[in-house]
Design a binder for these strands. Structure first.
Length: 290
DNA sequence: ACCCAGGGTCGTC
DNA sequence: GACGACCCTGGG
């Protein structure tokens, strides 16, 4: 592998900070120069926005342009999506303005499955640390600019970890869930492809729920972030909070039922509920005191 | 120092 | 369908 460069000029709706900090991914880190560096599949990439250019630079196993178009969802028209969301109400308009450069990454299904199992009742800094340690211990090294990066372990690589190994890496009670899910994937080689080909959301959700550690929220995240199902609406504490603040206004947000939020999201946002979720999540998390 | 919450899920009642 | 338990860590 050798370094490749790809530059987008005058490209709209692309802001690295918005993309990497809206909660969809865990392996991108901010550098001193404002750029972000991350690992996905067998690639290491650095992304920097300067003036009217987006500069992609890195070690890629395939053509960097092809890889970026796929991973950064460059063929989707976000101007149109944002226009539609802005028309819904003023809240959406404000959240879309705030996170104008958000894009939904097309992440690897296996990595998303494990990562979001780890995310359960956990906080983002700790989730990132756990995934980094998993990669360092079981993934493959890629050297670039005198730094060593590690790929996310494949199912085979992760199968080398015992439950106790996982516990030692800091997974806590999620050790068993990750261990069992890895075992299921390794015993059913065609399962991941089968999931990728399933178009029906309900069937997909049922299949995902069979993995230990995958409940409704984690299943929705997997579908939205790695299977391009833009109509699902993952509900976590932040989304519950913002939906309650904006529409429901219950004194105790924890008392608001998931069903009620789901219904509201489908009615208001419909087939792009997942996109709405990302703008709202990012907006609410970055403006906590509001 | 102590307490709480965090991109929830699971087992039990 | 409600309710508590669950590893661990950063921040109040």
């Amino acid at each position: 592998m050798k370094e490749q460069i790809f530059i987008l000029e005058n490209y709209n709706s692309f802001n690295p900070k918005h993309i990497f900090e809206c909660g969809q991914c865990f392996r991108w880190n901010l550098n001193n120069d404002g750029s972000y560096t991350g690992v996905f599949k067998n690639n290491v990439l650095n992304v920097k926005k300067e003036d009217n250019k987006i500069v992609f630079k890195g070690m890629c196993e395939d053509n960097i342009i092809k890889i970026c178009i796929d991973y950064f969802d460059l063929d989707t028209d976000y101007i149109d999506i944002k226009k539609r969301l802005s028309k819904i109400d003023n809240n959406l308009k404000l959240s879309v303005e705030f996170g104008e450069g958000i894009r939904i990454l097309n992440q690897d299904l296996w990595e998303a499955l494990i990562s979001f199992i780890i995310s359960a009742n956990n906080n983002i800094p700790r989730i990132k640390g756990i995934i980094e340690r998993l990669s360092k211990t079981y993934g493959k090294p890629i050297i670039w600019n005198e730094c060593t990066y590690y790929t996310f372990p494949t199912p085979e690589e992760l199968s080398k970890a015992s439950e106790q190994d996982l516990r030692n890496l800091g997974l806590g009670f999620r050790d068993k869930r990750v261990f069992e899910t890895t075992k299921i994937i390794n015993e059913n080689k065609g399962l991941l492809d089968e999931l990728k080909q399933e178009e029906n959301i309900q069937i997909l959700r049922e299949k995902l729920n069979k993995f230990p550690g995958v409940g409704p929220k984690v299943a929705d995240c997997i579908m939205l972030f790695s299977l391009k199902k833009f109509n699902v609406f993952p509900i976590d504490v932040w989304v519950r909070r913002v939906m309650n603040d904006l529409y429901i206004k219950n004194e105790d947000e924890t008392k608001v039922s998931k069903k009620q939020i789901e219904k509201l999201a489908q009615e208001k946002y419909g087939d792009i509920a997942g996109l709405a979720q990302q703008y709202l999540f990012y907006w609410r998390r970055e403006n906590e005191a509001v």
